[in-house]
Design a protein around this nucleic acid. Structure first.
Length: 696
RNA sequence: GCCCCUGUGGCGGAAUUGGUAGACGCGCUCGACUCAAAAUCGAGUUCCGCAAGGAGUGCCCGUUCGAGUCGGGCCAGGGGCACCA
């Protein structure tokens, strides 16, 4: 008997046995109870590193455990294969994104097999395969027919040099990350999915997800952002005789037009209605736009507001700016009370109604604004009735208290006063209680090549026409090049020129592709059932779904998980799948981190290029000293990635997996270390000795 | 700014409901084996102290016979959201 465990032989032997026996293949018609275990499928970026390995090891252990407990286990693997890195690679090394992607898949699949995971490879899929994305196009058309898809103008970050749209994270200090050109905000027609139709369901559904981390549920709750409040209208009136005569002309004209008789605002604090001292509209508000047509100074102010970036940091430091339109509105509860109307840079068009009423005493932004433009700061909430006359100083007070200086509301608590005002507004017809959401519809258009083509044809006569189902999949053309800036689909000589399916006339294909989050919004259904002629079979998919345990990084806590939940509910509404929630259990695992190293000239140096020299760490190739840096998440750019093959070859799959699971609790970060894997290796050896046993 | 999470040895971390703090592992130290090393086996390992003894779960206060655990107030680190009305 060998005196030591040889993982290279053992790994290979067992992996071959499992492969030949189809041990981990899930049967659709087993009568055992089912268990669907899924890890978030990887993007085929190049190679598997130990961070991937940790994620899949967790699922693997669970899958094997359930299997041993008598469950029929579905534990599949696939590839989230569309996305920008493939296009970047295409530009950098002049390879086709598809070729780059498929070659990465081959490599990474071999690496996963080397780790011996209990995966059902017979269900492997890649989202960049027409056999996958063709079905996605069909599902998109289903949603389109159900009127859950629409088209509207939306702003994008446009890089004028690369002639491409940039994601927010590709805009660095207002410049394109690749070209360095100043990014412009441009309006394009784009496709949207009506996720807001499901806002209530998606929020309520969270309560039932008791096997999800509270943290993730909370993040989704905040993201959906339900606010109860009141919408109400301020009637516009002619400006006061004194003061604003300069603007009298245009304003009078406005009064006559039907659309601008009143300004509708939204508030979560109707109780402070007697504390208002101004009304402000967004620079994008229709009223502002109308005023700009006649008044150059309004147009100039709006242009000024549009300068500058949209990043959080810039917005934070931006000064509150307003433009007095000279218009006035009537207070709904006092016809004698007139309030000035401003255009203000801090009012957002896409939240609420795009207009607010300012209560400087009890809202910090309004306070700053009122201070700057010398508007009254009224107190309407106080700690007690006795403090009604105390001035609000220094900053706005948004605490609880008792209503003061508010006529019929005096003495009420904040919540009672809210209800009282809403009741009165509804009775008198100038406003109503309402709910506003932070969640916006999901913009799915991407002006990129390497994604699922949106199956729509644009005809000058017929408008947007769905591609007939029998013509699906709309395949990406292969003969494209990336040596010129812009979207290759846009400039391809023939691809976009097609006949209109409706009238037969000349028409153009949609050249936008779908956001890759669409691809990952239903792959777990396709894993459960993959007929060739349709996206999935209802009964077969329902046998496996929901996923019993989903495992992945917390970085997907909001977008991916929310989109997948939406997509599943949309399919349910269409009667395609009777499942409300795709993931019954969710586990968010910690990251794998590693020390970083830098050379004297600031280059990142990979761990395997380093050794301990006389005076500390040195770079092996050059002997130059190396600085130990911070411990960070493994990433290619910082060169602190540990490849799974190197570890598997040196220590075997078991030691690697043992270390990845045992060193840190799974939900926390794990710091990869040589000492740690060495220890795990010795542990595996000890276990083997105990199991095989000395005979003496 | 708002919301949330986490602070325990050199390290990862244990400690059902408030009841022997530091399980288990890593690392380290010493010893055995060996010509020697690696591997392996054994012992030790919170800190201060030769010892007796004392201190100790981020800090301060409180509740309790008893607090890592419960309450209040801080500090530090991390995460999410954000001119959201």
């Amino acid at each position: 008997m060998a005196s030591r465990f040889n993982p290279l032989q053992a790994d290979a032997r067992w992996q071959q046995v499992w492969e030949e026996a189809g041990t981990f293949r899930a049967s659709d018609d087993s009568n055992r109870p089912k268990a669907y275990i899924l890890e978030m499928f990887p993007y085929p970026s190049g190679r598997i590193h130990v961070g991937h390995a940790r994620n899949y090891t967790m699922g693997d252990v669970l899958a094997r455990y359930r299997r041993m407990k008598g469950f029929e286990v579905l534990h599949p693997m696939g590839w989230d294969a569309f996305g920008m890195p493939a296009e970047n690679a295409a530009m950098e090394r002049n390879v086709h994104p598809g070729q780059w992607t498929w070659s990465n898949i081959t490599t990474m699949k071999a690496q996963l097999k080397r780790l011996g995971f209990a995966l059902d490879w017979s269900r492997e899929l890649a989202t960049c395969d027409p056999a996958y994305y063709g079905h996605e196009q069909a599902l998109f058309l289903d949603l389109y027919e159900a009127e859950l898809v629409y088209r509207k103008q939306s702003e994008v970050n446009w890089d004028p040099v690369d002639m491409t749209v940039l994601a927010n994270e590709q805009v660095i200090d207002g410049r394109g990350w690749r070209s360095g050109a100043l990014v412009e905000r441009r309006k394009l027609d784009q496709w949207f999915l009506k996720i807001t139709d499901f806002a209530d369901e998606l929020l309520d559904g969270l309560a039932a997800l008791d096997q999800w981390p509270d943290k993730v549920r909370l993040m989704q709750e905040n993201w959906i952002g339900k606010s109860r409040g009141m919408k109400f209208r301020f009637e516009l009136c002619a400006p006061a005789q004194a003061g604003a005569q300069a603007n009298a002309g245009p304003a009078d004209g406005l009064l006559l037009s039907q659309e601008h008789k009143s300004i509708e605002v939204f508030t979560t604090r109707p109780d402070t209605i007697f504390g208002s001292s101004f009304v402000a509209v967004s620079p994008d508000h229709p009223l502002a736009v109308t005023l700009a047509q006649d008044q150059p100074e309004v147009a100039a102010f709006i242009a000024e507001c549009k300068q500058g970036g949209t990043t959080a940091a810039e917005l934070e430091t931006q000064e509150k700016k307003g433009f007095d339109t000279g218009l006035e509105v009537l207070h709904p509860l006092d016809p004698e009370w007139r309030l000035p109307v401003f255009i203000a840079n801090f009012v957002l068009m896409d939240y609420g109604t795009g207009a607010i009423f300012g209560v400087p005493g009890h809202d910090q932004r309004d306070f700053e604004f009122a201070t700057k433009y010398r508007l009254p700061i009224l107190r309407v909430v106080a700690a007690s009735a006795e403090e009604a006359d105390r001035a609000v100083e220094g900053e706005a007070e948004n605490g609880d208290g008792v209503i003061v200086n508010s006529r019929f509301l005096d003495g009420l608590g904040v919540e009672e006063a809210k209800a009282q005002v809403i009741r009165r507004a509804e009775a008198e017809g100038w406003g109503e209680g309402t709910t506003v959401w932070r969640l916006r519809d999901w913009g799915v258009s991407r002006q990129r090549y390497w994604g699922t083509p949106i199956p729509i044809i644009h005809c000058d006569g017929c408008g947007a026409v769905p591609v007939p189902r029998e013509q699906l999949p709309v395949k990406l053309p292969e003969d494209v090049s990336f040596d010129v800036p812009g979207n290759p689909l846009e400039r391809h000589p023939t691809w976009k020129h097609v006949a209109c399916p409706s009238c037969g006339g000349e028409a153009r294909r949609e050249t936008d592709t779908l956001d890759t989050f669409v691809d990952s919004s239903w792959y777990f259904i396709r894993f459960a059932s993959q007929p060739a002629d349709r996206p999935f079979d209802k009964a077969a998919a329902e046998r496996w779904l929901p996923v019993d345990q989903y495992i992945g990084g917390v970085e997907h806590a909001i977008l991916h998980l929310l989109y997948a939940r939406f997509w599943t509910r949309a399919l349910q509404r269409l009667g395609r799948l009777d499942v409300a929630e795709p993931f019954a259990g969710l586990f968010t695992q910690g990251m794998v981190t590693h020390e970083t190293y830098r050379s004297a000239d600031g280059r990142w140096v990979a761990p395997d290029e380093i050794e301990v020299g006389a005076g500390g760490l040195i770079e092996r190739a050059t002997g130059a000293p190396v600085q130990r840096g911070r411990i960070e998440k493994m990433s290619k750019s910082k060169r602190n990635v540990v490849d799974s093959d190197a570890i598997a070859d040196q220590y075997g799959a078991d030691a690697a997996r043992w270390f990845l699971l045992s060193d840190s609790p799974p939900e926390r970060d794990l710091e990869w270390s040589d000492a740690g894997i060495e220890g795990a290796w010795r542990f595996v050896q000890r276990l083997w000795r105990i199991a095989t046993g000395p005979t003496h």
